[in-house]
Design a protein around this nucleic acid. Structure first.
Lengths: 110, 110
DNA sequence: AACTATTATCGTAATATTGCGATACTAAAA
DNA sequence: TTTTAGTATCGCAATATTACGATAATAGTT
């Protein structure tokens, strides 16, 4: 126990849940917002900006990279992180497909 | 360690992350989809439908109730769960506010 | 080549989550 | 009132996540 039974769910359900999960941490929300708000792409000003250790930030960046919503390109001795616009929009679209399902309310909900 | 440092993030960041997190499990996605697809609201056909124990389903339902996206009304000896349409749309809207931020791409992303 | 700055990874401790059996609780049914 | 069905909660075991210091890896600088 303690491990999710992914095999009993559909790929779609697992995929959607993985996307939601990746965004389910305030540090990762903050990282995305910070990257978005800088005109230039950002590397590890994040360590100064958020109050988390370098190792922790790096770990969160890895999570975000894993779902593809950001990408990092080597820029000299630092790494420039930025939003992958295409993925950003695609993920939003996937969420909206989910949320745009028609919700049929019947009786029991006042 | 092992506990999220919520105090260093804004309320908005914590709120958004909490919403994402609540949806970040395939069982909870499946539960929402199942409730939506039934014309009538549902109680614990979920236990038969998904391959999870009753205690586990009940736990997931609690998580979903916590963010308000579903509500349960007592119906005799069973409980009828349904989507809270208002919250459903509100949460979608909160996600879209986040995703509709303008992503400024600059240089480093090819 | 030695040094420095930046980032990734490893190992570890603390906490959270997932899943389940057992049990308590509740309301209808007999 | 006893029984029964449905649900919630407790307690536990297994695994995952979060956070961090230490260290490795990389690429520029001197």
């Amino acid at each position: 126990m303690g491990l999710t039974k992914t095999e009993i769910f559909t790929d779609g359900q697992n995929r959607l849940a993985a996307l939601f999960k990746a965004l389910g941490h305030p540090a990762r929300i903050a990282i995305l917002q910070y990257i978005i708000n800088q005109k230039a792409c950002i590397c590890n000003d994040l360590v100064d900006e958020l109050g988390l250790a370098q190792a922790t930030i790096s770990q969160h960046l890895k999570e975000l990279k894993r779902i593809g919503i950001i990408q990092g390109t080597i820029e000299g001795k630092s790494v420039c992180y930025c939003i992958d616009e295409k993925l950003w929009k695609q993920i939003q679209a996937e969420f909206n497909v989910f949320f745009n399902q028609e919700v049929k309310v019947t009786g029991c909900c006042p």
